[in-house]
Structures are given as structure tokens and as C-alpha cells.
Design a protein around this nucleic acid. Structure first.
Length: 223
DNA sequence: CCCTGATTCGC
DNA sequence: GCGAATCAGG
């Protein structure tokens, strides 16, 4: 599998996003974890928290494997990294909390009847006032690169996912047109209303039960 | 053992 | 340039 521009771009993004090499390899498909790491290094991407990288434990006896089992020690250690490492984190000053919490203003009075939304499958969820929004995992704001290729233009890629768009997968990872639904989510759920209906099946009374629609993975092709 | 990233080196 | 093999730490 060749390293096309698109694939290189994915690699960069996912790598900097903190995904492990294995995950990236799986995402890209057709490459091994080693291939991903090798490519990442060739691209100049640098170690992120690596288990084995902290400092220099000992005088590392470099692996001398195949050829020349006994050769005079060749000092092959590479030059130290240049100053180029400073990751310029754009200081969008704010930890700008997603507007989702803004939509739940402190409502002291309880004149508000319990808001319960019922999804297509019959599932319920608590209203905005019933539960404090679990906001803490608010990821830092991050700039995403423009779509590198036109065929991605109208598709919701992995990078486009956020807390308020439907992340229901369309097609399968690794396929050329794999992307995500991208509709506005059913508040409180990771999917839009339609896909909540697919993802959450209400337990219907015996006899009325219908065969479940296909799940995103494992079943016959969706869509 | 599993995982991780780093490094080397034949191709 | 690529990536399997290998290393080393968790």
C-alpha cells in the first residue's frame, strides 16, 4: 500500500492527535504498526509519550543483529534534536466550553415541567435540568486542517467529529468513502435522532419484536 | 505475555 | 523511501 498524500495526511493528524501507532495503522488499513511508526519518523513527527523513551536509562547497547555480529563499536547515535520541537499551540485563550452547557442556564425555579425526550426507539433520557452536564472532558480547542482533497469535501471525517454531530459511521473504516453521518445529534447522545433509533433498541413486548436493524459493524452493509 | 514507540538496516 | 525485525520500557 502506497503512502498517498491523503494517507500521509491522516497519519499526521492521527499521530498528533495522540492515537497510538497501532490504532493509526488499523485506521489507515493495509499497513503495519511499524510502517506507521517508520513513516512518522521519516516525516519528522516526533515521539509522543512513549513508554521507552524517557531519557536514557543506560548506555544503550544498540541492537546489532543480522550482519556483523562482531564489529568494532560504531558510534551511531544521532544528533540531538534541534530546537524545532516547540509545538506552537495556538493560544485561543479560552478553554472555550462548548455551547452545550450554555443551553442549560441555571433555572432556580422549578416551574419547568420535566423535559424528557423520547427517541425513536422508545428510549428516554433525562432533561437538561435533571443532570449536570458532564462537561469536564472538554477537549482543548483545536484547529483542523482544511480538507486536503475535494472528494472529502462533503463528508464528515474523523477530524470533524465533535460533541454535537452524529458520529454514526457510514461505510467501513478503510474504505475509500468511509465517513460519519454528521447530522446534528439528539442532545445527550452521540448520534442523531435517526441513528439513535438504530443504536438504541427499545425492548418491545414479546411477540411484537421485530428483527433488529443492522448495526454499524459486523452485520451486512449499512446503507 | 501484552502493549507501547524507537531504531536499525536490507531491500 | 519503506517496513520487518528487533529492542527496551511499562
Amino acid at each position: 500500500m502506497a503512502w498517498t498524500d491523503e494517507r500521509i495526511d491522516q497519519l499526521k493528524n492521527l499521530w498528533e492527535k495522540g492515537l497510538t501507532a497501532s490504532q493509526i495503522a488499523e485506521e489507515l488499513g493495509g499497513v503495519s504498526r511499524n510502517a506507521v511508526i517508520g513513516k512518522a519518523h521519516r516525516l519528522g513527527l516526533k515521539s509522543r509519550p512513549s513508554p521507552v523513551k524517557s531519557g536514557d536509562s543506560k548506555k544503550k547497547a544498540a541492537a546489532v543483529k543480522k550482519a556483523a555480529p562482531k564489529a568494532p563499536p560504531k558510534p551511531k547515535m544521532m544528533a540531538a534534536e534541534a530546537p524545532a520541537a516547540a509545538a506552537p499551540r495556538p493560544k485561543t485563550s479560552t478553554t472555550s466550553i462548548p455551547s452545550s452547557i450554555a443551553s442549560a442556564p441555571a433555572q432556580p425555579s422549578s416551574d419547568l415541567p420535566k423535559v424528557v425526550s423520547i427517541g425513536p426507539g422508545g428510549f428516554m433520557r433525562q432533561g437538561p435540568g435533571d443532570q449536570q452536564a458532564p462537561i469536564p472532558p472538554a477537549p482543548p480547542r483545536r484547529l483542523v486542517p482544511a480538507k486536503p482533497s475535494p472528494e472529502m469535501a462533503d463528508k464528515t471525517s474523523l477530524l470533524d467529529l465533535n460533541e454535537r454531530i452524529c458520529r454514526w459511521p457510514i461505510n467501513h473504516p478503510g474504505e475509500a468513502d468511509f465517513h460519519f453521518c454528521g447530522e446534528a445529534v439528539n442532545p445527550g447522545f452521540p448520534y442523531c435522532v435517526e441513528h439513535c433509533g438504530r443504536a438504541y433498541q427499545a425492548q418491545l413486548p414479546r411477540g411484537v419484536r421485530r428483527p433488529p436493524p443492522p448495526m454499524p459493524f459486523g452485520g451486512p452493509r449499512v446503507r
